[in-house]
Design a protein around this nucleic acid. Structure first.
Lengths: 350, 350
DNA sequence: CTCCCTTGAGAAAACCTTTTCCCAAATCGC
DNA sequence: GCGATTTGGGAAAAGGTTTTCTCAAGGGAG
C-alpha cells in the first residue's frame, strides 16, 4: 500500500506521463525529456533505454502542456460561412491536407452570416491559442461577418474578400474565362456567346471582361453577355433569347457559361430545340462541378478553379506566416484549369 | 520606468494573464481566479472590482492552462472520410452547431480511406486531449479505415458503421422509404416501381424491403426493384426498361427512386418519351439534395434524411457521454421526412 | 475578557513538459 | 599527481490556471 493508492477508475486509465517514464527508466524527468527530444547530452545507451521505456509504456507527450510552454499550439482555425456550399469542401480539404502534413490540426468553425456567432468562434479560437486563422467564404467579393484585422495571430483569406493589408488567395477568374474562350477560338468557333450569373457578383464582371478581351484579340464579334441567375432555368431562358430569332445564321456556335448549372440548362434547352452539342454549338461551363459536368449529355467541358490547391496554398501561406516569414500582403490569384470533356468537339483539323 | 520595462514587440503583444489582473486589482491570483469563476468567499465589492479590472484589461483565460488542469479540453474531433461528399456537410454543420452552443470546438479531420492518415489523426487528437470523437462517413454500411474501439475517450458514430458496443446514429432508411411509398398510395397510385442504386449498398436493400412491405400492406402488386447505379444515366436506362414494353396499361404510374440523381434521370427520360410528370407518372427521390430536387422539371418530391439533425444529435450524445452519462449502446435510427414538391401531383379528391 | 466560529483572502501545490543552469565525476594535459 | 576541461545527468523554474489549505482578523456568545 503506497501512499498514493487510488481506487483507479474501471475504464479509461489516465495517460502515462513523462514522470512515469522517467521513474520506470530510473532517470529524472529532465533527462527523459531530453532523451525523447534528442536534446542534451547523455550516453547513447541511456537515451536508447529511455526511448524504449517510453515506447513500452505507450507514452505520448501531452500537447496541452507542450503548447503552454512553447506558446505554439499547432492548431489553426478555419472560419467559413459556407457550410452547405460546394466551394468550401475542396478548399477545406486542401487546407486540412497542407496542415496535417505539418502536424497542425484544424478547428472547423461555421459562422453562417451571423456576426455574433463569428465573434464567439474567433474568441474561442483565440482562447485556445490557435497559431493562426484561415478565413474562407462562399463569395470572393464579400467579407465574412466578422472583423479579423487586429488579431494577435496571422490571418490568411482564401476565396473571400481580405481585409486591406492582409494576405488573400483567390482564383483567377479572368484567367479561367480566357482559358474557356481561347479554347473555343482554337476550335474555330466564331460566334461565341456568354451567359452568366447575377450582375451583383464581381466574378461575373471579371469573366465577362476577359470574354470581351479575348474576342477582341481574335478579331471576333463580341456580343453583350447575358446576365441572369446561377440556375439551370436561366440557362433555358438564355437559349430562348439566343436561339429564338429566325435566322439560323445569327445563332452562336459556342456558349461560354458562368457556371455548370447554367451550362446544363443550356445544353438541355439546345437538345430540346434539336440543336446538336457539340456539332452545332459548343458549350463550356465554370466550376467543374463533377456531379453536374459528368451528367450532362454530352459531358461538359468546364473551368476548374483548383480550389483544393487554393486551400493548400492558403494553409502553407499561413504556416509560413506563423513561422515568422513576412508574407507580401495583397491578393494572390491562382490559375484555373480547363477540364476538357465532350461538349466542345474537336478542332477542325483534329 | 518600472522594473519590467520591456522593448514591447511592435505587433502582437502577449495576452494579459490572470497574474496581471490580480496585480492590477491588488489581490492574489488565487483570489482573482475565484472572483472570476464565482468561487470562494469574498466581499461583493472585491469580486466586482476584480471583474471590472479583468474586463478593462481584456483578460481572457488561457484555455490551454485550464484544460491542462481540468483534464477537459472542451474540444472534440470529427473524423470523416467524405470530404468531398454531400452527406458530410449538413452533418458536420449539425455537429458543430450542437457543440458550439456548449462551448466546445471541433477538430476537422479528413482521413479519406487511408488507414495511416486515420491513425495519424486519431493520435493527434488524443495528444491534444480531445474530450471525445465523432466518426462519420459517406456510407452507413462501411467502417472508417481506423479502429476507434479502445480509446480513452468516448466515441459516437454518425452515418457510418459503428463498432460493436458503441453508440451509433443513422437515418431510418426503411422509414424514409415507407414515407415515400405510402405517399404514393395515399395519392391513389397503384403500380409503383422502385429504381435504386447498386446492390452492394445496405441501404438499397433496406429501402427495397420497406417498398415491398408497404405495397403488400396496401394489397398492391409488387414488382422487383431495379438495381443499378446512383446516376442520372441509370435513371434513363431504368425508364427504358419500365416503359419500353408496348402495352401502356402495364406501365407504372409511380416511380420511387433511390436517390435524387436517379430521379432526375427518370424525369428527364419520361419527358423525352412524352410521358407527363406528375400527371401520368409520379416520381419521388431520396436525399432531398436541393440543388437537384429544385432543378428538375417539375421540382422533385424527395425524402430528406435530416442529416443536420442527425449531426446535432450525435454532438449531444457525445456531450452526455463526455459528461459521464452512460448512453445505451447500439444503433439509434432517426426518422426521415418527406419534402413534397410537384413531382407527385395531388390526391384524386384534392 | 476569553473562546470559538465565521469571514475574507493569500500561499502553495498541482497539471505536464521544456529548458536553463548547475554539479559531480571522469578524463585529459603536463 | 594536480588543475582544467569535458561528460552525463539532475534540480528547478517557467508557462497560466484552479483548488485546497492555511491564516489572520473580526464578531458573537458566555
Amino acid at each position: 500500500m503506497s501512499a498514493d493508492a487510488e481506487p483507479a477508475p474501471v475504464s479509461a486509465k489516465p495517460p502515462v506521463t513523462l514522470r512515469e517514464v522517467a521513474a520506470a527508466a530510473g532517470v529524472s524527468v529532465a533527462t527523459a525529456s531530453k532523451a525523447l527530444n534528442g536534446q542534451g547530452r547523455m550516453t547513447a545507451e541511456t537515451r536508447e533505454r529511455i526511448r524504449e521505456t517510453a515506447r513500452l509504456l505507450g507514452f505520448r507527450p501531452n500537447s496541452l502542456a507542450q503548447s503552454l510552454l512553447r506558446k505554439r499550439s499547432f492548431t489553426v482555425g478555419l472560419l467559413t460561412n459556407d457550410t452547405y456550399g460546394r466551394f468550401s469542401l475542396p478548399l477545406m480539404a486542401g487546407v486540412s491536407d497542407a496542415l496535417v502534413d505539418n502536424g497542425v490540426s484544424v478547428f472547423l468553425c461555421n459562422v453562417e452570416d451571423d456576426t455574433r456567432l463569428g465573434q464567439l468562434h474567433v474568441e474561442a479560437m483565440l482562447d485556445k491559442r490557435v497559431d493562426g486563422i484561415i478565413a474562407t467564404g462562399k463569395r470572393i467579393d464579400r467579407h465574412l461577418p466578422v472583423d479579423l484585422s487586429n488579431l494577435r495571430v496571422p490571418v490568411v483569406y482564401a476565396f473571400t474578400q481580405p481585409d486591406p493589408g492582409a494576405v488573400g488567395l483567390v482564383s483567377d477568374d479572368a484567367g479561367g474565362a480566357r482559358l474557356a474562350v481561347e479554347h473555343f477560338c482554337r476550335l474555330g468557333r466564331r460566334r461565341i456567346a456568354h451567359v452568366s450569373g447575377p450582375e451583383s457578383f464581381a466574378v461575373v464582371h471579371a469573366r465577362a471582361q476577359a470574354y470581351r478581351d479575348v474576342l477582341e484579340e481574335h478579331g471576333l464579334p463580341t456580343a453583350e453577355p447575358l446576365l441572369g441567375a446561377w440556375s439551370e432555368a436561366w440557362g433555358h431562358e438564355a437559349v430562348a433569347k439566343l436561339f429564338g430569332k429566325a435566322g439560323r445564321e445569327g445563332w452562336p456556335d459556342a456558349v461560354f457559361c458562368g457556371n455548370d448549372q447554367i451550362a446544363r440548362g443550356v445544353i438541355d434547352a439546345l437538345r430540346e430545340r434539336g440543336i446538336g452539342v457539340p456539332d452545332d454549338v459548343g458549350v463550356i461551363g465554370f466550376d467543374n462541378w463533377e456531379i453536374v459536368a459528368e451528367a450532362t449529355r454530352p459531358p461538359l467541358t468546364s473551368v476548374d478553379m483548383n480550389l483544393s490547391t487554393l486551400g493548400r496554398e492558403a494553409g502553407l501561406a499561413l504556416l509560413s506566416l506563423v513561422g515568422g516569414q513576412p508574407a507580401a500582403p495583397g491578393i494572390r490569384k491562382l490559375p484555373c484549369r480547363l477540364v476538357v470533356r465532350q461538349s466542345c468537339g474537336r478542332p477542325p483539323g483534329g
